[in-house]
């Protein structure tokens, strides 16, 4: 076993940001481990994806192209990955943490009898062995994992943990592999976009509202317009999702989404520990609340004590006039 293998995700025919980040870190780790950096492209129609992976620094890009790989299925994609793993024999396999990649990574690790770390925020090589750092318990516990020698490691890495690979081809090659006949026990019969869905985990700015807004009508009057003025998405605390004001998709926290945008604005959100679990790693936090003792202020970069009903419309107007 030697080197690193990165699973390449694609968005509209391009290499996804997370995969570029993994190629960047993958190169550093491959060097530290003294092995090659491989990339894995699994698709029915890879376009120029393999060539792109070469320019991102892969020594070898393994491709598995088959009509049966048009949609993600566990059997298809794990089956394909196992072919590449058998060929490349990596010590470390890297992928992202989307729902699809969690489904894939845990299944692959089980099949390979590998070590698994999910939601990894840092990776390093010490004494020739891989170490993974991951948060759990709503970010209240940061654990360092070691892995049993002689088994590969599957690490699913959080977005924005590493810098993107700077494109720099190393003369890597593309190696097509053949997908064996697999028992495909699930079939995707349809895919549709979520209506009006916002991918909160991708938003640079998130404006969230809580019970302090008073009622549902106020939430929609104040929060989406402010989010729009920031050019961001809108979220909600569990309390108002459970109260039926806002769909679950918008819930931030322990039982909703975990986000770490550049700016998180918490308006009328008290900052229950369940909510903090989902947003405490945001790079900047603005808290607006009429209770100066609200726990949200303890994590805030900027805190404004005041009535959200008064402050939010003013803030929306101010942003519109100053950001154009």
């Amino acid at each position: 076993m030697a080197g690193v293998l990165v699973f390449i995700e694609q968005v509209g025919g391009e290499v996804a940001t997370i995969s570029r980040e993994l190629m960047g870190k993958g190169r550093e780790l491959a060097q530290a481990l003294g092995g090659p950096l491989g990339a894995l492209v699994v698709s029915n129609d890879p376009g120029a994806l393999a060539e792109r992976a070469v320019t991102l620094g892969a020594d070898t890009v393994y491709t598995l192209v088959d009509p049966g790989l048009a949609s993600y299925t566990t059997d298809g994609y794990v089956g394909a990955a196992k072919v590449a793993v058998a060929t490349a024999q990596p010590v470390l396999i890297l992928a992202g943490t989307s729902f699809q990649m969690r489904d894939f990574g845990a299944a692959l690790a089980t099949d390979l009898d590998a070590g698994l770390a999910v939601d990894v925020t840092d990776l390093k090589v010490e004494d020739g062995a891989i170490r993974a750092i991951r948060p759990s318990h709503g970010g209240n516990v940061i654990s360092t994992y070691h892995f049993t020698a002689g088994r590969p490691v599957v690490a699913l890495v959080r977005k924005q943990s590493f810098s993107e690979a700077t494109a720099g081809a190393r003369g890597g090659s593309i190696q097509p592999l053949t997908l064996p006949t697999l028992d495909m026990r699930t079939q995707v019969t349809g895919v549709r976009e979520k209506g009006g869905a916002v991918n909160l985990t991708d938003a640079a700015v998130i404006v969230s509202g809580g019970r302090g807004l008073g009622d549902k009508e106020n939430y929609y009057k104040l929060i989406p317009p402010l989010a729009e003025a920031f050019g961001g998405a809108y979220g909600a605390s569990r309390a108002i999702v459970d109260a039926g004001w806002v769909p679950y998709e918008h819930q931030v926290g322990q039982t909703g989404k975990t986000v770490s945008p550049k700016l998180y604005v918490a308006a009328g959100v008290s900052g229950a520990i369940q909510h903090l679990a989902g947003m405490r790693t945001s790079r900047n936090i603005v808290a607006i609340n009429k209770d100066p003792e609200a726990p949200i202020f303890r994590v805030a970069t900027f805190g404004v004590v005041g009535d959200v009903n008064e402050i939010l419309p003013l803030l929306t107007r101010e942003l519109r006039s100053r950001l154009g």
């Binding site: 009898d113 170490r131 209240n140 654990s143 070691h146 049993t148 405490r280 202020f297 404004v304």
Partner: peptide, 29 residues
């Protein structure tokens, strides 16, 4: 098991924040 947790720490504390004060809501905004 293939994994072993060798260290566990609480998260680093967030730097203390800044209170935005002002005579009224407009000034704070």
């Amino acid at each position: 098991v293939a994994t072993k947790i060798v260290n566990r720490v609480p998260p680093p504390p967030r730097p203390s924040g800044e209170r935005i004060d002002g005579p009224d809501a407009a000034a704070k905004v």
